[in-house]
Design a protein around this nucleic acid. Structure first.
Lengths: 103, 103
DNA sequence: TGTTGATATGCCTTGACAGGCATATGCCTC
DNA sequence: GAGGCATATGCCTGTCAAGGCATATCAACA
């Protein structure tokens, strides 16, 4: 349960689902049409996304409307944080290098 | 070949390897000692990381010294970018809401 | 050149999904 | 409450990746 964030994102179809939900809420049927994937497959991916917190879902008559929740994505963002220093520092070093070249 | 960036990151041990390489270059033996994982396992993960561009490696006598390369991580950062708007906009909306409350 | 140390690779087994299909569940309408 | 959509779940199968072990490679050194 509650699979690891990166494991969830490792599935290309799930990333495509997120890409669509990023633009707004979608019903399962919408996603099925857009993605060209079988309905059971989409439902299973949505379950994984739901149980890992990437999406929430509300019921509207016979439909289930899915909406993105950014918290797991912010977790990824947070994980990246220490690494980000790595390339900003490289940029700093590059700047210093260029500065020294100018003189 | 050149496995997908997220697939590579889905493996916990590989993320631990990156966590260590973030602090500086390491030999394979160093990583084996630190991680408590068998040497063949570490070598295989390093191969995956190498072939997907996360690390580079140079030979120093009998040792191979591995170093992190940030480019794939920047790719993840870039992938996150459109999603990031999602939560900054939410914050904007929250600010506006709080502002309106103040009045 | 034979030996030792450091690392890579091959083979094998096991476990974790993903997709297809059939079917169950839930809700709405008549 | 029967039938019809929309969605979820179960079962089965194929695929792929990870780890263990043995072993190959390769550099240094005696």
């Amino acid at each position: 349960m509650t699979a690891d964030v990166f494991t969830v994102l490792a599935e290309p179809t799930r990333r495509r689902i997120l890409d669509h939900l990023r633009l707004g809420e979608r019903s399962v049927g919408d996603l099925v049409d857009t993605l060209g994937v079988s309905q059971p497959a989409v439902s299973k991916h949505l379950r994984v996304l739901r149980e890992s917190g990437f999406v929430t879902c509300r019921t509207a008559a016979q439909q289930r409307i899915y909406r993105i929740d950014v918290r797991p994505l912010r977790a990824v963002d947070g994980w990246l944080d220490p690494y980000r220093q790595l390339w900003t520092r490289h940029l700093d070093a590059l700047e210093r290098h260029l500065d020294s070249q100018e003189q």
